[in-house]
């Protein structure tokens, strides 16, 4: 059984081909990294997997089932959670409230019972709280539990967003630039956490990341993209030393392309 498969996925924005015939699969329990220069289509791939965009062509399958018929809000119920490059949190709520909202898909007791806080609801709430507290302990968020998001530093918000994704109890976690804007020390913490998320929680991770230090430290496999196309796929070492990847990062191939384009 394959876990996540993208098959010949293409997405166009008008004349721009943002994702060009991309195929790959991610195995259960893997940490899979997407790298490439800005505009390569990494975040766009995330937005395709989380059903924010509809691909023009191709198929995306999760646990052997196509997800292309689902709405974005149905994606979490499959066990796919994500974070965002620009951090999307509930700003006027506390850290704890943000994580509890992450429990949304697991809330089962009916609305009227909840309004009057019956014993069944109390029991369920305690279970949600227990799971959320475990995540708070795991990510060292105790000092910020009752703080409002609006007043928290950037690095902490990033961790809170990852914590909320974990609160949904995902099978697949999509991390969009987990280390961007983090200090060296915070990045070290992030490496440690991603390893733990993989090993101890058994969650598959796909991440978009520029920090090659983090990518090589935690990834099993890496896919390099440029201009929406696959350049190379393999272990971090293989991809880093791949001539096409080096070219894409140094930008020489881009320049040549432009010159050729101008001649035509």
């Amino acid at each position: 059984m394959s876990f996540l498969t993208l098959e010949n996925v293409t997405l166009r924005f008008g004349g721009l081909v943002a994702v060009n015939n991309v195929s790959f699969h991610v195995g259960k329990g893997e940490v899979f990294a997407l790298v490439g220069p800005n505009g390569a289509g990494k975040s766009t791939l995330f937005n395709l997997i989380s059903r924010f965009y509809d691909p023009a062509e191709g198929d995306i399958r999760f646990e052997d089932k196509s997800i292309l018929k689902l709405r974005p809000d149905q994606v979490p119920s499959l066990g796919i959670a994500r974070t965002f490059q620009n951090i999307e949190l509930f700003e006027q709520s506390t850290v704890l409230q943000n994580l509890l909202v992450g429990r949304h898909r697991h809330a089962k007791v009916g609305g009227f019972a909840q309004t009057f806080f019956t014993p069944a609801v109390r029991k369920e709430e305690m279970e949600h709280r227990r799971i959320v507290e475990e995540i708070i302990d795991f990510l060292d968020l105790q000092p910020y539990r009752d703080k409002y998001i609006a007043g928290l530093p950037y690095g902490i918000r990033k961790v809170v967003e990852m914590a909320r994704a974990l609160a949904t109890e995902p099978k697949l976690l999509l991390l969009d630039e987990p280390a961007s804007g983090l200090s060296l020390e915070e990045t070290q913490d992030m490496i440690f956490w991603i390893e733990d998320i993989k090993k101890h929680m058994g969650i598959t991770v796909i991440m978009v990341e520029h920090d090659m230090n983090l990518v090589s430290a935690v990834s099993d496999r890496v896919l390099a993209l440029a201009d929406g196309k696959e350049l190379a796929i393999g272990t971090p070492k293989e991809v880093q030393s791949h001539p096409e990847v080096i070219k894409a990062y140094l930008g020489s191939s881009g320049l040549d392309d432009k010159k050729e384009g101008a001649k035509k």
Partner: peptide
């Protein structure tokens, strides 16, 4: 207290975040 009531508040605070915890905004 209610799931629906909290979902309403979540959707008003951040639509993207609400979508990806599973709230049909």
């Amino acid at each position: 207290k209610a799931k629906l009531g909290k979902a309403m508040q979540a959707a008003s605070q951040n639509q993207l975040a609400a979508y990806y915890v599973g709230i049909p905004v």
